[in-house]
């Protein structure tokens, strides 16, 4: 094993389309090891899709995704499963298994892959739950938890196997300010304490700029800006200003592309 590069994930000239609709045209980005990288952009541009491309759940039309130097879309299924043991994803909905309790949810991957005996698994699970502050909720079912607690339980599950990289899909969406604060704190702490590589996909500008080390902004199928939070705040790019400032209209149009308004009103049925 020669020296590890600073980049854990590298995306080169990635293109992806769903049916006729082009989601990404030509995207290249690098995710540094041990840092919090944020990917921002307006809703509906397929940020979740990007995470699924990184995880190998979707296959791109062209381009490559290198995870620690290995092209994730060229390996066999079993090699892909091996790579996936080194990464994990926190889904927007939490995606806890609804038919088993919180403890079993967190223990799930450990029981599947670690081969450790139950006494050790129990100890690890309790430690992970303690880290997200839900040790007391171990025996509850996911449906008995609030949305924020579900996401924290899912976070405990995501870090159970001590992955190298955690991908967060919209971790702040639909959370009250307190849960949001808790999650921001957790992501930062976990990243620092376990030297995790974190990828946060979000459109919550304030929170993201607060925790990210490096930010990519995606809009209109391309990366429109990148840099540290400070650099982005200082930028005078119009589209970036609109997104960060939250202005309703601007270079990113308010209207969905449509035929000429007057013509359509007057013209009637074609």
């Amino acid at each position: 094993m020669n020296h590890k590069s600073d980049t854990l994930v590298e995306i080169r000239n990635l293109g992806f389309s769903r049916g006729e609709r082009v989601i990404y045209e030509d995207i290249s980005l690098a995710i540094p090891r041990g840092k919090v990288t944020a990917i921002m952009g307006p809703s509906g541009i397929g940020k979740t899709t990007l995470l699924k491309l990184i995880a190998g759940q979707l296959t791109p039309d062209h381009g490559e995704v290198l995870f620690d130097g290995v092209d994730i879309h060229k390996v066999s299924r079993s090699e892909l499963f091996e790579l996936r043991k080194r990464m994990s994803m926190l889904f927007q909905s939490g995606a806890l298994f609804t038919d088993i309790n919180v403890f079993d949810n967190v223990a799930f991957a450990l029981r599947e892959h670690s081969g450790l005996d139950e006494a050790i698994i129990r100890r690890i699970v309790l430690m992970k739950l303690e880290a997200v502050g839900l040790r007391g909720a171990a025996q509850l079912m996911p449906s008995e938890l609030s949305g924020g607690m579900q996401r924290r339980a899912a976070l405990a599950r995501a870090i159970a196997l001590e992955p190298e990289m955690v991908m967060y899909d919209e971790p702040f969406a639909g959370q009250d300010p307190i849960s949001m604060g808790v999650l921001v704190k957790l992501i930062r702490e976990l990243s620092d304490a376990l030297s995790l590589t974190s990828v946060v996909v979000s459109h919550d500008v304030g929170e993201v700029l607060g925790i990210a080390d490096y930010v990519y902004v995606i809009a209109d199928k391309k990366i429109i800006a990148e840099g540290t939070p400070a650099e982005l705040k200082a930028s005078d790019d119009a589209r970036l200003r609109q997104f960060i400032g939250g202005e309703p209209d601007g270079p990113v149009p308010f209207h969905y592309p449509a035929a000429d308004y007057q013509k359509e009103l007057v013209g009637g049925v074609n």
């Binding site: 759940q57 994803m89 995606a95 298994f97 799930f108 991957a109 599947e112």
Partner: peptide
Amino acid sequence: GLMKSTEQLSSLEMMAVD
């Protein structure tokens, strides 16, 4: 269907479980 729409199936895949 519910497992799929709540991403439980994706989540299994991410945990390297088929």
